[in-house]
């Protein structure tokens, strides 16, 4: 009870402060919270949900999933083969260092303005943290466990599935978490730069058209999307890494 009160206390206070401080606001740029919430309902619980919001999220998922597959596959190969890693590491370091949004104009040149471009943009940004973390994870697998696999003839797909990928999973998850926030950024950016629909496009449209409460509602929606996806991610992480967190908690007690 007390814990819930403490957890909810500050958020409630903050929202209340925002509500009352902005109530009856006449500042054009900072409308009342009640006005924003009204705009939120009018704007996003209608055709915009299906025409703009959901397609954006769909592209995000598509690009993210693709990046996950690519990053883990390539990362596993690179992590497991020392000469390949030595060969590719500097090149990968450079490619990763490019801030992903600047690739948007380049990818537009090659893939046009459609969905494909946006998915490629998301993949091109999300793949690096996943790939590099997978490499680290695969490289750092425990030698004794590797010996165990060899002496018990655990090889091939079995070894990959039950040993390598599981052993690397804490790092892979770390990379996937970084990739998720980059993915959201790129979803929005690609639509802000070049699109005729989607969340990013709509919000910029509101801003340029001085539909201020609508714009605020879009900002709110993006925030909620980020929070929602990160909560979803945590659910998956808990399930995948239950052993890891348990083991770490166990070690801390020592």
């Amino acid at each position: 009870m007390r814990r819930i009160a403490i957890a909810l206390g500050l958020p409630v206070v903050l929202v209340a402060v925002w509500w009352f401080a902005s109530a009856g606001s006449t500042d054009f740029y900072r409308p009342a919270l009640s006005r924003i919430l009204l705009a939120f309902r009018e704007t996003w619980f209608g055709p915009r949900l299906f025409d703009d919001a959901l397609p954006s999220v769909g592209r995000l998922f598509a690009g993210y999933a693709l990046a996950l597959v690519l990053g883990v596959a390539l990362g596993t190969a690179i992590g497991a083969i020392p000469w390949l890693r030595a060969l590719l590491e500097p090149a990968l370091e450079f490619l990763r260092a490019i801030p992903p949004p600047v690739l948007v104009p380049i990818i537009i040149l090659i893939a046009g303005f459609g969905d494909l471009m946006k998915v490629i943009v998301i993949v091109s940004g999300c793949v690096w943290p996943i790939l590099l973390n997978t490499v680290e994870g695969v490289r750092g697998v425990d030698e004794v466990l590797a010996d165990t696999c060899r002496s018990y003839r655990i090889t091939g797909a079995m070894r990959l599935r039950h040993f390598v990928l599981r052993a690397a999973s804490p790092q892979i998850v770390t990379g996937a978490r970084q990739a998720l926030s980059i993915g959201i950024i790129l979803m929005v950016i690609s639509e802000m730069i070049a699109a005729s629909q989607g969340l990013g496009f709509t919000i910029v449209q509101f801003q340029r058209g001085f539909q201020i409460p609508e714009m605020w509602s879009g900002v709110l929606l993006l925030g909620l999307l980020g929070v929602g996806l990160s909560a979803l991610f945590q659910v998956f992480e808990r399930r995948i890494l239950i052993w890891y967190h348990g083991q770490r908690a166990e070690m801390r007690e020592w």
């Binding site: 425990d142 004794v144 466990l145 010996d147 165990t148 002496s151 018990y152 039950h162 040993f163 599981r166 052993a167 999973s169 052993w243 890891y244 083991q247």
Partner: peptide, 14 residues
Amino acid sequence: AVVFQEYGRSLFPW
């Protein structure tokens, strides 16, 4: 079959 010295590291923690 082999049983290793480092038992803590020879079982799959997951």
